[in-house]
């Protein structure tokens, strides 16, 4: 639901969207470069933000640089609009940009996300901004920044497959389930941020623009609309997404990413849509899961 935000206007001490215009220009240049070289990590001068590193400063800086008065912002954290972080960041932008906010994916023009991609297919006029902790997919195998930069520059990605090989040798299958590395536009290997591998296919040929911001590591990267994004795998161990054997307990949705919710201390649990907006929408349209209740009249 869209909220009116007039009560937050008038705080003249902040520039629009908090960042000064020079910083926005610098970040926009980085974003343009990132779009021109899909999947390539562009260094940028990450600023001090009013939240500590590890809380989405990269995503916030990207959003702050692209947001305009006409935009409608949605913020999700692990798929939910109502967790603390999502709420805080949404309130932050209401305060410093005075923009409209929403929880409906379809109505948003900018969606800032931590660790999930919405179930709803994104449209041409939308931008998805990811919060990224460690942008370098090779970091855990090769700690030297000098080496990883060379590897990207020279397209030396053997090491990435070494990691997958090790997984198969140790576990019988590729055990990476989130932050699953992808090859973008057939050139750069990229870390999609800690989204579950379930979401990787959504990145491929998306109509929306996808931007990635890592504040602590000072990198921005991008996947332009209609770009090929292919998850790395082996011919005889192809990429597979997670499957869930039960539908959402509340709305009955199938083929969506489910969160596990502990119900009691006796081991009771239920699986519900991670994407809260998606679940709500379905319930509004009358879908009911085996633990859900039929939706009463809208509030």
């Amino acid at each position: 639901m869209t909220q009116e935000v007039s009560q937050y206007s008038g705080l003249a001490s902040y520039n629009f969207a908090y960042l000064d215009e020079q910083t926005k220009r610098m970040i926009r240049r980085a974003i343009l470069k990132a779009i021109a070289i899909p999947g390539y990590q562009v260094p940028f001068a990450s600023r001090e933000m009013p939240m500590p590193y590890g809380w989405g400063t990269g995503g916030v800086q990207v959003t702050a640089s692209i947001i305009g008065q006409e935009d409608v912002l949605k913020v999700i954290d692990q798929g939910a609009d109502d967790t603390t972080n999502a709420v805080s960041i949404r309130a932050f932008f209401q305060k410093v940009a005075n923009v409209a906010v929403t929880t409906h994916t379809r109505d948003a023009t900018i969606i800032q996300t931590r660790h999930r991609i919405p179930e709803e297919k994104l449209q041409e006029n939308q931008v998805l901004v990811y919060q990224v902790p460690i942008p370098e997919p090779l970091r855990f195998l090769e700690p030297r920044e000098t080496e990883t930069r060379k590897m990207h520059a020279l397209e030396e990605y053997g090491l990435m497959h070494v990691k997958l090989y090790e997984d198969i040798a140790k576990n019988g299958r590729i055990a990476t389930t989130y932050a699953y590395p992808v090859k973008v536009a057939g050139r750069y290997v990229m870390d999609p941020s800690p989204t579950p591998k379930f979401d990787n296919p959504k990145m491929h040929m998306s109509e929306a623009l996808q931007l990635f911001g890592a504040g602590r590591e000072k990198r921005i990267y991008a996947v332009p609309p209609f770009t090929e994004v292919v998850s790395l795998d082996f011919e005889d161990h192809p990429f597979e997404i997670q499957t869930f054997d039960k539908p959402c307990a509340l709305c009955g949705a199938e083929q969506v990413y489910l969160d596990e919710v502990i119900l009691d201390d006796k081991g009771g649990r239920m699986f519900v849509c991670s994407d809260t907006d998606h679940c709500e929408e379905r319930r509004e349209h009358g879908h009911v899961g085996h633990l859900g209740v039929a939706k009463e009249a809208a509030e």
């Binding site: 990605y157 053997g158 090491l159 497959h161 090989y165 198969i168 082996f234 011919e235 005889d236 161990h237």
Partner: peptide, 8 residues
């Protein structure tokens, strides 16, 4: 793997 072999 570095020269493109992709069959585990």
């Amino acid at each position: 793997m570095a020269i493109g072999n992709r069959h585990y």
